[in-house]
């Protein structure tokens, strides 16, 4: 009897240890349609670019930084960024994300074309005030400044017939 209790105790302890050590559940930013990020306009950049600070979640610094690049593009396309020249989303069509699901899955895939329009505007360092441990220390929230080539991005989407050209109405 004692032995059974001991074995059950060990099993329970192991299960607890396994589940408590599992990484926090995190939606894949590539496919997620939720806006689990924050974008702040910093400055108007050179030659059709805009500078934003994007706060993204991840299990480590690298994940957060990669997510920030992607989230910056997503924010411009689908959400709009207050205070910037992109207050309204670039794609104003309702349900465009669903309608062009295959296009965006390819556009936002790992190493996808979205990377042609976004770059880090830092020397690779993270401002210590923009690194926050969240959810009982299992996730990180990191803010990083990125530069988005909004004019080139718009042109690409126009060429790919995702959005209409600004001059098309005339």
């Amino acid at each position: 009897m004692k032995r059974s209790i001991l074995v059950a105790g060990v099993i329970l302890f192991n299960l607890f240890a396994i589940f408590s050590c599992r990484p926090a559940k995190l939606a894949d930013p590539r496919t997620s349609t939720s806006y689990d990020y924050e974008v702040v306009f910093i400055r108007t950049g050179v030659a059709g670019t805009e500078l934003f600070k994007v706060f993204s979640y991840g299990r480590n610094e690298r994940e957060c930084i990669e997510a920030s690049k992607l989230n910056a593009i997503k924010a411009i396309l689908f959400k709009g960024i207050p205070g910037s020249g992109m207050q309204r989303p670039m794609i104003s069509e309702n349900g465009a994300e669903e309608k062009y699901r295959d296009y965006f899955n390819d556009f936002f895939r790992s190493g996808g074309r979205y990377l042609n329009f976004v770059a880090l505007s830092t020397d690779g360092s993270i401002d210590s005030r923009d690194r926050i441990k969240v959810k009982n220390g299992k996730l990180l929230k990191i803010g990083i400044v990125v530069s988005v080539q909004k004019d080139n991005l718009r042109k690409q989407l126009e060429d790919d017939k995702i959005i209409k050209s600004l001059s098309s109405g005339f």
């Binding site: 910093i42 400055r43 830092t122 020397d123």
Partner: peptide
């Protein structure tokens, strides 16, 4: 800082 400088150079106002 290096970050400040890079952000400044990426800005229109430089």
């Amino acid at each position: 800082t290096d970050n400040d400088y890079k952000i400044a150079m990426d800005s229109k106002k430089k």
